[in-house]
């Protein structure tokens, strides 16, 4: 995967984000809402690690999180915080993440998701005194295992018109 020569298509990025937004908001058939995958987080992470040209803006990510929060009926600001932090982590990792082995990528993604879920659960505990639901935290983090699928799907979806 050449990351530096290909010009990314904004339309493809936008469509992938819309699709991720749909899945994150509506969920998948046959899955409980608490078990639904947060595909949008993975998509944001993917585009952010590719480079400046494909990186979603922080404000956009924040609004996407708000949309997910409103549509899922969750606590407002939770997904915004999650996506903003994921974007920042992805920017920090950058190309080093893309060039690392897949297993390392998966492990890192799972760890990031786990940390973020614990952080969000911490806010719930602080404000509502509701203890952290370990099961839902682990499930949310385990969705990081689908990272290779998301990466493969998005990898085929960006334009190579700028590769000359």
């Amino acid at each position: 995967m050449s990351l530096f020569l290909h010009k990314l298509s904004n339309a493809k990025i936008a469509w992938s984000i819309v699709l991720g937004l749909f899945i994150s908001s509506v969920g998948l058939p046959g899955l409980a809402a608490t078990m639904a995958p947060d595909v949008l987080a993975l998509i944001i992470f993917y585009w952010a690690t590719l480079g400046v040209s494909s990186r979603p803006k922080m404000g956009t990510v924040f609004l996407l999180g708000l949309f997910v929060d409103f549509s899922t009926g969750g606590a407002i600001g939770m997904h915004s915080l999650k996506y903003v932090l994921m974007l920042t982590i992805a920017i920090q990792l950058g190309n080093r993440f893309q060039m690392s082995p897949v297993l390392k990528q998966i492990a890192l993604i799972v760890l990031v998701l786990l940390a973020l879920e614990i952080l969000l659960g911490g806010f719930v505990w602080i404000f509502l005194k509701i203890p952290l639901d370990i099961k839902s935290v682990i499930v949310a983090a385990m969705w990081g295992l689908v990272w290779p699928l998301v990466a493969a799907a998005l990898d085929k979806n960006y334009s190579r018109t700028g590769a000359k």
Binding site: M58, F62, A75, I76, S80, L81, V84, F123, V124, F127
Partner: peptide
């Protein structure tokens, strides 16, 4: 944005 998000979480949950 983190501050804004925490504020939103606070106002929503609390």
């Amino acid at each position: 944005y983190v501050g804004l998000a925490i504020c939103l979480i606070f106002f929503d949950l609390k």
